[in-house]
């Protein structure tokens, strides 16, 4: 069983953290991953930076631009992750835009992921239909779980389709927005969370976008298996560096 699937079977709410690889410094990747695991994070999204991250707000855009300036590339990231499974056990997901993977070669990319113990991918601009028609077989060959997004605007019919193609979890975008745009959830969001929870989907949901503290984490996980924090964590390392990750995680979980 894939590490993501095992993790989803644990009887607890999951905290997943996104960070941009190569930021704030090019060689922070492994340290960040190890520290996150040590402090009780359940799953990690390793952001492969892209020059034109359409679905991201300023925080992640800026960290991506900085990471690229630092010299981060697909090859550099894979080199950094080569021995990651000697020290880290929690599920690792690479999150990035499709073009860098496409240039690397989708199959070559997937093979490297398998070789180095990456469990899944999140590719916001690879639509589910294109994945289904062209790439699903490759992802499955290398044991990778592809995670799809749904939003408050996604129709029930499409959610069912996405559910049928998924075999890990569904990334539930909390509101119509880019990353880092929201603070706190209103009635509209909780109604949406409830609606999805009541659909009894095959795959569990993890909520992302707009989670930045203990309050929003608790709110989101009331309706779902877990929550993902991205921009808030990137902001934290921007301000405080990578030595106080324990503080950040503790504040969320307690």
């Amino acid at each position: 069983m894939n590490r993501i699937q095992s993790k989803l079977q644990e009887d607890k709410k999951l905290l997943s953290i996104y960070f941009t690889a190569g930021y704030p410094n090019i060689n922070d990747t492994v340290t960040i991953i190890e520290n996150l695991e040590k402090n009780g994070v359940d799953m990690i999204e390793i952001g492969l930076p892209f020059s034109d991250p359409l679905a991201d707000g300023p925080t992640i855009q800026d960290s991506s631009t900085a990471a690229l300036k630092n010299g981060m590339t697909t090859e550099v990231l894979f080199n950094q992750l080569k021995d990651i499974r000697k020290t880290v056990n929690i599920p690792l997901i690479i999150m990035g835009y499709f073009n860098p993977m496409f240039q690397y070669g989708v199959e070559a990319f997937c093979k490297k992921c398998q070789d180095f113990g990456i469990d899944g991918l999140i590719i916001p601009d690879l639509p589910v239909d294109v994945y289904h028609e062209e790439y699903q077989a490759i992802f499955e060959k290398y044991g990778l779980i592809n995670v799809f997004l749904i939003t408050p605007q996604t129709s029930d019919e499409r959610i069912r389709y996405i559910d049928s193609i998924s075999n890990g979890f569904i990334y539930m975008v909390s509101s119509a927005s880019t990353t880092g745009a929201q603070s706190g959830f209103g009635e509209e969001q909780t109604a949406y969370f409830e609606r999805i929870a009541n659909m009894n989907l095959k795959n569990q949901q993890i909520i992302g976008f707009g989670i930045s503290n203990n309050e929003t984490f608790t709110q989101a996980t009331k309706y779902s298996k877990g929550a993902i924090i991205g921009s808030a964590f990137v902001k934290h390392v921007t301000k405080q560096g990578i030595n106080t990750i324990d503080n950040f995680v503790n504040v969320i979980l307690n």
Binding site: D52, T74, N99, P100, M101, Q103, D125
Partner: peptide
């Protein structure tokens, strides 16, 4: 340009070997 994805479509675009748009 090389084949790649920019602004929602697959087309020819100027990019680095690593797929970053130039």
């Amino acid at each position: 340009g090389k084949e790649g994805i920019i602004h929602g479509c697959k087309t020819l675009l100027m990019q680095t070997n690593d797929g970053q748009i130039t």
